[in-house]
Design a protein around this nucleic acid. Sequence first.
DNA 1: GACAAGTTATATCAAATCGATATATATCAA
DNA 2: TTGATATATATCGATTTGATATAACTTGTC
Lengths: 180, 180
Amino acid sequence: MDVKTLCLGVLIRGEASGYEIKKQLEEGPLAQFCRAGFGSIYPALGQLKAKGLVTWSEHSQEGRPDKKIYRITDQGIAAFRKALRKEPSDDRVHSESLFMIFFQGFLDSGRAAEIVDAYRETYRQIATRMRVADLTEAPAGHRFVHAIGQSIYEAIVDAVERNRHLLSEDVDKKALATEK
Amino acid sequence: MDVKTLCLGVLIRGEASGYEIKKQLEEGPLAQFCRAGFGSIYPALGQLKAKGLVTWSEHSQEGRPDKKIYRITDQGIAAFRKALRKEPSDDRVHSESLFMIFFQGFLDSGRAAEIVDAYRETYRQIATRMRVADLTEAPAGHRFVHAIGQSIYEAIVDAVERNRHLLSEDVDKKALATEK
DNA sequence: GACAAGTTATATCAAATCGATATATATCAA
DNA sequence: TTGATATATATCGATTTGATATAACTTGTC
């Protein structure tokens, strides 16, 4: 699942500029399990253009650089369908927070608790945002993926709360120090 | 959190060869949220060697290439502690399975259900494996991270079961076709 | 009203990483 | 015996990351 396929996935839902593709990958419903930066999106769009999988039109804007709106072609749709026919690779998770907590013994005193609290808060916010989303109109695939994501984020918040005591020795000392 | 830091993290728990580092990153307790291939591990070890953060000794073996055992140095430990002092970046999740299910409308009939069943089974196995792990001797950080991971995997299995019906139209047709 | 910070928009580039492949042998199952 | 899996290192092109550059508008704050 390279960035080219990711772009096709965004464009199949509607035309967009490179900038808008990145925004959708960050804020849209795909954000939970996809990611790409400008450094890969712009070259990807260039390659898609060269292969005829997307067309584009330039819209000049005052003050800002021209906006290039990309639109998927029939060939692009076919290529996207083909990409979806491969076997999905295993999920990849990269969590620096959990890596750091794993090595708690090498962290400064109280640092693990700090990281864990920020971690909980991040996922609490995401979970809250997802809970209020309205998907009654969305297709089954969207609803399914949303439900899985929400369950995971709620499980994280819950599990952090249930297990935080494991790291709390330091924290109590720190809390005491701050109080006095 | 680059591969150099990942290698130091493995080596701080005991000496290992490049091959063994990869195995630990795949099968060990770090596997849940880390990943690296040979193409990044061997160059990383080379750089760590050059910086004096690890030492190595060659052990000749019959039939197989010489095994190079790497060991972290005091400088390496210091560098690892320093790396742990940065702010952790946001978690990154990459899931081709969920991406494909999101675009269910573009998948062949019944394919989404197939993917989802394989997905459930993968995490069911991981969750089962984690449930029987004995961590009574492990440090708090290990136990915490293990608990979070287990909760996530169990939440996935559970959520897939609760939401599978959203994708089941196709499946029922397929099941019928197979039965006859 | 001035200044900082954030948003919209494209693009490049070095460094890091991925994924496949090469090389060799041993072992175990079909 | 054929194929698959495991041990072990290593390289290499293609892809991706993360930082940076450029430029002007918008929004909030003192």
